[in-house]
Design a protein around this nucleic acid. Structure first.
Lengths: 208, 208
DNA sequence: TAGATTGTTAATCGATTAACAATC
DNA sequence: TAGATTGTTAATCGATTAACAATC
């Protein structure tokens, strides 16, 4: 009999960063312990769901007292690979790309923009927020050379799929896509979408 | 016997804007008809799911030929209230707020920033991308006066809940929140979150 | 000990999909 | 008509939650 691999649902993985974030705030508040109940209240998630989610990875709590915040945070950081620095390739140096470069939170959280690409000759070679803008043609060589695994796409919708294909071919395994289009990627590649308009339209349904 | 209200699942509502977006691209491509199969392929959604989703609202297709794109788009626009212009209150005129002001796509899609607020005396009264920055103190009066129902929060996490409370009290019913915190709002109020770091952490789990 | 809270099983709830009649 | 595709029912799949023993 082969060992049973119980894959962890992606929806569970998606909640872990929320737990991590809440724990970070609690550390700032000099809290030492937290119950699943309190953590859940803070996040609008049931306590049982939090316990179930965490139980996929181990037993981190103590009956009667809850979770030691520092310890749980450390565990979650390891699980999410949030305890290391990931280099990011940013493709697209327009208004949006520029704003993303200035957004310091990325690097503070371990996702540091390392190279910026654009295909506009007006931008190539110029500096933007401390970064030289490289020709998009050089994505394959630079991304491979530096072993970059994470990219942010901030180009127009019409170019996003082509950029995605190039990034994937160069070894990128996770893409944060700001372009308003669904990307087609191989299963081994993760994609997440940033789509304020889609979210506004979602909410507008409930308005009258 | 009372009439049975079959509420439409929120997860279904959340997919409608994706359908709408794909249809808009197809119109640009001068397409006239589309099958649920093709629409699904484009979005990475099964054709059966698309048909099921649409069937909550009516029968929009024709056996053998699929959906008339212009017609379906019009229907979805109505359903999502995307056929009107929504005025937006933007709270927070920092780097992020500034970038959001410059982002024209919002207004093109019917979500037009109408007022900008900040509490920094350095910013109040100054112009930013064509908008005067108003004192956050005046949120209640201005939002009520103009009947604004949709807001974007772009303030630091520490202030976001307070801002949210004020907006809700002033009549806002939908909030797009860029602050990294879960907001507590009454059930009648919709909230959507923009959280690139949470999404990057989610993907990083799958990297090694 | 008594009270609090975890970790987990089983039940429930909800969403997706397979199958297919209807029909353009 | 034959082929294509819709709309819908029933089955399946997966996620959440209720209940509770274990234990700090």
């Amino acid at each position: 009999m082969t060992s049973t691999i119980k894959a962890i649902p992606d929806i569970v993985i998606g909640r872990l960063p929320l737990y991590l974030r809440a724990l970070a705030y609690m550390i700032e508040e000099n809290r030492e312990f937290v119950s699943s109940q309190e953590l859940g209240d803070r996040l609008g998630i049931s306590s049982v769901q939090i316990r179930k989610d965490l139980s996929y990875f181990g037993e981190f709590g103590k009956q009667g007292t809850g979770y030691e915040i520092q310890f749980l945070r450390q565990q979650l950081r390891q699980i999410l690979h949030a305890d290391k620095v990931w280099e990011i390739a940013l493709v697209g140096a327009g208004d949006l790309g520029h704003a993303l470069i200035r957004y310091e939170e990325f690097c503070e959280k371990g996702f540091c923009i390392a190279v910026v690409f654009d295909r506009d000759p007006q931008k190539i070679g110029r500096k933007m927020g401390g970064f030289e803008v490289f020709d998009a043609e050089s994505i394959p060589t630079i991304v491979k050379e530096r072993g970059i695994k994470v990219a942010i796409i901030a180009v127009p919708a019409s170019e996003a799929q082509a950029v995605s294909d190039i990034l994937v071919k160069a070894g990128v395994r996770a893409i944060l896509n700001y372009a308003p289009i669904t990307l087609s990627v191989p299963p081994k590649v993760q994609v997440q979408y940033i789509n304020p308009i889609i979210q506004l339209q979602h909410m507008a349904y409930y308005l009258d």
